[in-house]
Design a protein around this nucleic acid. Sequence first.
RNA 1: GCCGCGGUGGUGGAACGGUAGACACGGCGGACUCAAAAUCCGCUGCCCGCAAGGGCGUGGGGGUUCGAAUCCCCCCCGCGGUACCA
Length: 832
Amino acid sequence: MSETSERRYQAGEIESRWQELWEREQTWHVENHAPAGARQPKSYVVEMLPYPSGEPHIGHLKNYAIGDAIAHFQRRTGHRVLHPMGFDSFGLPAENNAIKTGVHPRVATEASIASFQRAFRSWGISIDWSREIASHTPEYYRWTQWIFLQLHRRGLAYRKEAAVKWCPNDQTVLANEQVVDGRCERCGYEVELRQLEQWFLRITDYAERLLDDLDTIEWPEHVKLMQRNWIGRSVGAEVNFRCQELGIDYPVFTTRPDTLFGATFFVMAPEHPDVLRLAAGTEREAEVHAYVNHALTESLEDRGDAEKTKTGVFLGRTVTNPVTGEEIPMYVADYVLMEYGTGAIMAVPAHDERDFAFARQFGLPVRHVVAPLDGSTPPADAAYVTKGDDAVLINSGEFDGLTPKQGFERIVAWLDRQGIGHASVNFRLRDWLISRQRYWGCPIPIVYCERCGVVEVPEDELPVRLPEIEDYQPQGRSPLAAAEDWVQVRCPECGADARRETDTMDTFVDSSWYFLRYCDPQNTHAAWDPKVLSQWMGVDIYIGGVEHAILHLLYARFFVKVFADLGLLEVQEPFRRLFTQGMILGPDGQKMSKSRGNVIPPSPLVERFGADTVRTYILNMGPPEQDAAWNEGALGGAHRLLSRIWTLADELCSAEAIAPTDAAAQPSEPQGEALTLVRKANWAIDRVTTELSGRFGFHNAIAAITELVNDLYRYPQAERGARTFAVTTAASLLFPFAPHLGAELFQRLTGRRVWEEPWPAADPEMLSAETFELVCQVNGKVRDRVQAPSDAERELLEQLALDAPGVRQHLDGHELVKVVVVPGKLVNIVVR
RNA sequence: GCCGCGGUGGUGGAACGGUAGACACGGCGGACUCAAAAUCCGCUGCCCGCAAGGGCGUGGGGGUUCGAAUCCCCCCCGCGGUACCA
């Protein structure tokens, strides 16, 4: 038959056949509850859900190839695996697209979801599709709204007027986390401050726990560190400074109460509510007004520049330094931030760089209260900043001679006794601003009534559906405000005419709880059944990009803690283990972008080489947590590997006389090349298992399979049983990376379904040989290698090394000092 | 500025303190072919040497050790986070 010469690996046919079977049989479906009596441990594997826009890109494929490999490995190592998928389908791009093209965001989004679904199926990702969620559907956002009500009821969602960050391009407010370098994270426009009344979530109530519980989760250290820095816990004290003239106490927060004696002036933020009042009636009034107005209108970027010259204005008032009794001048200056601490500071120019710069500018006194231990004088041209035990307090009355560390404690205690201060902890984290003046998001289920005020929409009236509107153009208020029919409602409490809240929620609210809904996605009575959640939470491995290190991951942690407090959930942390994958860069090593023209769309590759090849290549690119540039040649290498395995299996299967034995069974007592192959197969099992259960070194796992395959080509004459075992093992090990081919070859070789097979266990007997290559070193340099028995004693190894020819020529004329023997490895002979 | 991570062949990378460079890409050579592609096989860190062999090698400098890519100190470079947070 001509077919024999034409036979080769054809991915397309194989892949669609297995995809159909998995779909028909719903192979990857799991029930909410484990069957009675089942003792399998659970494993909950989640990849960050995609935002559906256009077609999926290659980064998605990497994300899901990683998650899928882990899910398959977990299943075959005896776990009940929950591996769902969903869509983060509210958001600005769809809305901006609607403004441009007139296509309704729902239409565009749902078309995109369909294309993502097609792609995921063509990639063969093992998803339980019965659990799919999409955050824009009323079935989902009904419960997002319900969650909002639970938070509102407990005071965790509240309205306040504040200077909030406003993106003039997207025409909406933003959370602090969405402002990067004073610019809108999404569109890059410079952000403005606006005084607006908005909805906030009280994440600051959880600052301490969000910080502490980082110690309980297995996340990359740098991600934990980013969260720690973002939360920014500072230990210090609050101290009252009294303005005698007006009889008002102004508290400040300081991390350096030990330097209190050095506070020679006092500064308030321009936004501080008392600034104008303090200046009123003084000769500085006009100047202060002008300064405050300027500061409030200045761009965030200019104002936030730490390098610029310090500016400010004397308020014409003084406060009393509570420890020295001195009257010190009050200033307003834009280097003090209203959002942190109390909006006012005590300035200690001698020991704080910023205060020092300000003092220089305004000719204010600099008084050292901390000096080096050796009695030397600190430099006069800079602030002397140290707070450890390497210095000593001076000019500080009864506290002189203490180290700053001791002084901190003693001065705080003293302030406390005097009733003018107390120990205090401050966080950098701010409450989460969730209002958005945009259409394509989850409506906030609140009604405003003239008589009753802010009224919750009753739970049984949820969801508050997003109305259909004509005009998406943002005009400084939510487009929803134009839907007059929708806005006008009866007050749920008194029945009078009332108006709906027209802002929608930040889409990060939607994605802060989806992994909970996955566990119980069809529940129509509740967001979830806590009993079902207790089966699955927390997520055992969460996979996604580092770009979410702060935003999404912090918000999701916050939500889970709130739900735990409400008794809706048993865990304190959503994601036990986090894996952050690196980006796939373009062939030029640059980030892929349309403008650079270096985008590699996955579909044509999948069509040409098959999903298995692309998946294997992506996982073989290097450590998965690292960025890596696309390399077309190496993609071909992955395809070659798969073809080589296919050919090996095909030859075995199409040969006459198929042995009646189980292809997956290790032959007994193999000899010669057969033994080498059996050993290599066991070595590969061991290696792949280690890589998949520990650090996700997929590239090392694939390298081990490659070595096994290379050996199969090297020893074509090896006894058939050993070859069959080795090829079957290769197919089995390959399955998590190239599931279609793994399933296909395993089926042809054994007649069985590989995903129903337990993960192979390495035979310890086969992991070590009778002899090994003994490395013989002289003074740490390798001079020879000889075969030695694996169980040889130290004395024998030493003798073998001393006798090795390569060693002997380096011993001549030298005095033997000592011999180091590492059994099973090497001998190092030290000579002089 | 501060905090963190990382510098290994032409490239991606591998290496419990114990053979540096597995595996792959690329390159070179060979087999097959009329030829090419595909496939298969071999070689491939750098320097000296016909060879046998030797020397040098993990950003640079020092240290610990019988032995360092790996541990410690100093420096250089790159990447990431953050940036008036009192």
